[in-house]
Design a binder for these strands. Structure first.
Lengths: 254, 254
DNA sequence: GAGGGTGTTTGATCTAGATCAATAAGGCAA
DNA sequence: TTGCCTTATTGATCTAGATCAAACACCCTC
C-alpha cells in the first residue's frame, strides 16, 4: 500500500449487508430493512492497532463494539497490577457489554493485532432494540453466549488438568476460527504463550512443554504461532478429560 | 403451621410492589404502572423444596425465574458425570438466562433449601421489555452482572491461592446477604463444604482446614454452617492477595 | 435411642505443575 | 549487519494443595 492508496478506516462507512460476518454478529436474523436501521446507528468503523486499547477498566460505557477483523484480549486488572485474561475475542463478537451493569467498563480490551471494529453507541443500540424484536433477542443471545463461554472456562480452571485445558483451548480456537471461514485444522494464534497461560491459569513453561509433548505425540505441528492439528480425534479425547479413571461417572458435589 | 393454615404457594399470586426484593430484582427502576404490567406476566409463585431442580441441563427454555426466598446452586454437568458449580443464587437474582443463546438450558439449578421463585415466561418477558425501556435495561444489567461475577470467579480460579479464594468467597456471601437484609458479619451458609470446594476448585479437606485456620487466627467463628466474621479487615487483606511479594505491582501477561 | 448414611474434620503422604535457572530463537531498530 | 530485547523452550527443583485414610459428628428413619 503506497501513500496515495491510504484508506482512512475512521471515515469508512461500514455496511452490515455486505459484511461477511453477517450471520455471526448483531444483524443475525434481521430483515433487510432492519439491517439498514442498524447500519445507520453504527457510528463508524474504527481501526485499532496492535497493543492499543479499545476501552479500559473504569471508563464510562459509551459504545459497544462489533469486531470486523483482527482479535482482542479482554482482561481484568488486580489492585496489585496483575492481569487476568477472561477471553480472546474474534470477528463477529461483541465487546463492551460488561459495562452495562455499572455503566463503566469492568475490564480492559487490547488489540492482539491490528484490528477493526464497528463502534455502536450503546444508547442508540438499546433504543433500536426496542423497535426491532429480533435485535433485542440477538443482543440477549450474545450476552447469554458469553455467560456460557465464561462458565465453560470456569469448569476448565476449577477441575481440569493442564493437558485438558490446553487441548480444549486449541479445539475451541479451531472451531471459532472455522466458523469465521478459516481452516479448522490449521491456523495462527494471535496471542502469545504468556496470554494463553494467563487465560488458562497456568505457567508459560507448562504451555510450552505441553505444546512440545503434543507435537512429539503427533497430535499437532507447532511452528511458532502457526498450529496444525494432525490428529483431531486424539486431541478431542484429551479435551474431554474424565475425572473418574474409568469414565463411568459419579458426581462430585452432593 | 397447622393443617388448616397450609398455603399453596403454587396458587399464591406474587406482587412485586410489596416484595422486599423490589430494588434488587427485575422491577428495579420501574414506575408503578409498569411494575403492575410485570406482575401480570409473572405466571405464579412456585415453591421448590430442598434438592429439587428448578430446571435441568438440556431442557428447553420456557421461563426464567426470580428468586423470592431460599437459595440455589447452578452447575454444569460433565460427560463423565462430574459437576462444576458455577454459582450460588440468592433472593432477587434471576435464573435461567443461560438458555437464551441455544434455547435450551446449559446448566442445572438445584435448591439448596426450600425456596420459592417467581416464574416468568421468557417470551412474555421479552415482549414486555420492548414496551418498557427500563425493563429492557434492567434485563441487560442483570446479565451483565452475571458476566462480571463469572469473570471475577475466573480470576480467583486462575491465579489465587486457596486462602484467597475462600476469604473472597466468604466476603462475597457476606456482602450479598447484607444487601438482602441480613447481618454482614453473621450468617448461615446454605451450601455444604463440598459445594464450596467444588465452586472454588479445591478439595473439601482444604476448605475444612482453612476454615479451622481462619478460626484459630481469630478471623472467624465457625459453627457448622453458621459463620461469624470477627475480623473483617484481616479477612479483606487475605481476599486481596498480592501476586508480587511486595504488592508493588508488575503485570503478568504482555 | 439404636443404627446407618452423609457431611466434616484432622493427619500423613504424594504429585502436578509452579518456580527458578539458563539457553535459544525471533523480531526490530539503528 | 549488529546488538538488544522480548518471547519461547528445556531442564532441575520445590511446594501448595490433592489424595488417601481414619475418626468423628450430625441428622435422619425406624
Amino acid at each position: 500500500m503506497t501513500d496515495n492508496q491510504i484508506i482512512k478506516f475512521s471515515e469508512l462507512k461500514s455496511h452490515c449487508q455486505s459484511c461477511s460476518l453477517y450471520d455471526l454478529c448483531l444483524p443475525m436474523g434481521l430483515e433487510t430493512g432492519d439491517i439498514d436501521r442498524l447500519d445507520s446507528v453504527i457510528k463508524r468503523s474504527k481501526s485499532v492497532s496492535k497493543n492499543n486499547f479499545l476501552f479500559r477498566i473504569g471508563e464510562p460505557l459509551k459504545s459497544v463494539y462489533a469486531i470486523r477483523s483482527g482479535s482482542f484480549k479482554t482482561y481484568l486488572t488486580n489492585p496489585d497490577g496483575t492481569e487476568q485474561i477472561v477471553g480472546f475475542a474474534l470477528p463477529g463478537e461483541l465487546l463492551g457489554m460488561d459495562a452495562i451493569s455499572e455503566e463503566r467498563h469492568t475490564c480492559t480490551t487490547k488489540a492482539l493485532e491490528t484490528s477493526s471494529v464497528c463502534e455502536i453507541p450503546f444508547e442508540r443500540l438499546e433504543s433500536l432494540a426496542r423497535d426491532i424484536p429480533n435485535l433485542q433477542h440477538q443482543l440477549l443471545r450474545l450476552m447469554s453466549k458469553e455467560i456460557q463461554q465464561d462458565q465453560n472456562l470456569m469448569l476448565l480452571l476449577a477441575q481440569m488438568p493442564a493437558e485438558t485445558r490446553l487441548a480444549s483451548f486449541l479445539l475451541g480456537m479451531s472451531e471459532r476460527l472455522n466458523k469465521r471461514g478459516y481452516a479448522a485444522n490449521e491456523f495462527n494464534l494471535s496471542m502469545s504463550r504468556g496470554d494463553i497461560a494467563n487465560l488458562l491459569g497456568m505457567a508459560v513453561e507448562t504451555i510450552s512443554r505441553l505444546l512440545s509433548h503434543f507435537q512429539d505425540d503427533g497430535l499437532l505441528k507447532v511452528d511458532r504461532k502457526h498450529i496444525s492439528i494432525l490428529m483431531l480425534d486424539e486431541l478431542r479425547k484429551l479435551a474431554t478429560h474424565c475425572a473418574t479413571n474409568s469414565c463411568s461417572g459419579s458426581s462430585q458435589a452432593s
